[in-house]
């Protein structure tokens, strides 16, 4: 039981500082805008894609900095990330909302806030439904009082998925998943003794994250087919590789 807190702290070590992530994404967007003329400004959707793209770079960096992930061969690292990138993006978004988001607003990685009602009134049916689903999940997670330790465990559970096809070292991925699962269970039991099934409640959110992430991919792919997605991005590469 005394080993679990150390293990959780080890998982937290590779977490990125929100302020640094925000600065990096902002700097990248500003570089992009500065390189364009007055009549060549990016539209809102393209800016959102570039924000997601930069966040994705950050998530790959996060995985790379993790001791447990480093133990895997690059081939396995590739298939795991290729399989869960959209879930990691959704989880990252959810955590940001739980931590910083105000009621009725979406908090972006750049620190900007957008009212949900504005998005719903301007976006199409699919995007509106996605935003609503994500906001419902944010409410559920807020009600569960998700903490940093629990959030990082969910990220690891999504990343170390032994069910991913063509993983070579399945045993190691499975062992890591089991270890994180146990640490999460012990943590929820110790810190939320009044809440008898917080662990179960947290795990039940993962299929919802998965479902939203699949809808995100489908939406992005449709926009890609319409030629709306910026080229030469990690986001497009992930989408392409998964679909090919």
């Amino acid at each position: 039981a005394t080993l679990a807190p150390n293990f959780l702290n080890q998982l937290l070590e590779s977490e990125q500082d929100e302020g640094q992530v925000c600065s990096k994404v902002l700097a990248s967007l500003q570089r992009e805008q500065a390189s364009r003329g007055k009549h060549d400004r990016l539209n809102t959707f393209t800016i959102m894609c570039k924000m997601a793209d930069q966040t994705l770079f950050g998530l790959v960096e996060w995985a790379r900095n993790s001791t447990l992930f480093k133990e895997l061969k690059v081939e396995d690292q590739m298939v795991l990330l290729q399989s869960c990138w959209s879930e990691l993006l959704v989880l990252d978004h959810l955590c940001r909302q739980v931590t910083y988001g105000k009621q009725g607003c979406i908090y972006l990685v750049t620190g900007q806030q957008i009212e949900v009602s504005t998005i719903i009134s301007q976006a199409g049916v699919t995007l509106s439904s996605l935003v609503s689903r994500a906001q419902d999940l944010v409410s559920k997670l807020k009600a569960l009082h998700l903490d940093r330790h629990e959030f990082v465990c969910l990220k690891y559970l999504v990343l170390f998925n032994p069910d991913v096809k063509s993983v070579q070292n399945r045993r190691q991925v499975e062992q890591t998943q089991e270890r994180v699962n146990r640490a999460l269970m012990e943590h929820t039991q110790q810190t939320h003794q009044g809440h008898s099934d917080k662990f179960g409640q947290l795990l039940l959110r993962l299929p919802e994250v998965r479902s939203i992430s699949l809808q995100v991919e489908e939406y992005l792919f449709q926009r890609h087919l319409q030629g709306d997605l910026p080229c030469n991005s990690l986001l497009t590469e992930m989408l392409h590789t998964k679909r090919s």
Binding site: V60, R64, V74, M78, L81, L234, E237, M238, T241, S244
Partner: peptide, 18 residues
């Protein structure tokens, strides 16, 4: 055969010490 994600491979493989 599946397409290889060259950008992801580069990001995972790159040497940060140089």
């Amino acid at each position: 055969k599946k397409k290889d994600n060259a950008l992801l491979r580069y990001l995972l493989d790159k040497d940060d010490t140089v």
